[in-house]
Amino acid sequence: MALRTPLPPTGPDTGPGPGDRAPRPGKDDRLGRTGRPRGLARLRRLPLTVSWAPGEAQERRPPRALVAALAITGLSLMTLDHLGGDSSPVEPARTVVGEVVGPLESVAAAAVRPVAAVPAWFQTQASLRDDLAAAEAANAELESRLATEPLDRARLAEYDGLLTAAAAQQVDLVPARVVAYGAAQTFTRTVTIDAGTSSGVQPDMTVIAPAGLVGRVVGVTRTTATVLLVVDVDSTVGARVGSSNEVGFLSGGGSLDEPSRLDLDLVDTTVVPAEGDVVATWGSGNAGPYVAGVPIGTVAELFSTPRDTTKRAVIEPFVDFSRLDTVGVVVPPDTESDRALIGPDGIRR
């Protein structure tokens, strides 16, 4: 094809010459339309014939003079710009063009910016979700920490109280927390604490709270223990009234609610305790369930019935049995325990 003779000049409306069409059968233009060979061939021998916009002067090959002039202009521009440096004669032209195109570019960029931000917005959806999830998790954790902060404060205060109690009573305590209250339907006042034999807790040990006596251990498993509270109707505690050293027996009223009352029956009927006297445990030595000297409560009311041979006093306990949390189990000093013991001189392991 490259060897084909140049086409005859075509008229304004004749289209390609017949010779041009000859090799192609009928309407099968596809080869010719896409045909690189034809295009390349044409490229090789410019100028080209034109049929779809024929007959115009500029369809012809550009005059060498024009090409040369433009090329020389361009080269001169480059040379001038190169030699001129910062003070090149092109700079004013640059400035002028910049004055025109610069604002247009600003406008275009301003128009484009919101649209261009859209894909980034979509792209960051996933990471935004991740951020949100992380932030929500952190928020939940902080909220729970904030919510439990009063509890933690209270527990800290209780531990402090236990420490004080241990120092005051000169006993060793296994700290424990009340994890369950016995139901009122059982008519016993018991709680479960989270310390058992593995912590050194054994039956018949005294359980105290920072404020005073709580009860004694009646049942024990490896990790928990059941504590009979002193307010239980079956609970009887040997007690001593502080001012007179008179002894008596405390029995529970069976109610946890305020005011939970204990009844004190004094052995000596002639002694009249004063209201406000502090009542403490009398103590059974090593054998008994209650260690000596643990405060229980104060005398609130006094009753004397002619029928009975004893006087009866109502004791208001120091401990709020409806809000028991941290308690301590009094253990012998040499107890093996899986948790830190609170001793008279501080916490020891």
């Binding site: 390609p16 490229l43 100028p47 080209l48 014939t49 034109v50 049929s51």
Partner: peptide, 11 residues
């Protein structure tokens, strides 16, 4: 200089 005796096709 591409031949333009026809309407240029996409290719």
């Amino acid at each position: 200089s591409v031949r333009r005796d026809e309407r240029p096709t996409l290719p």
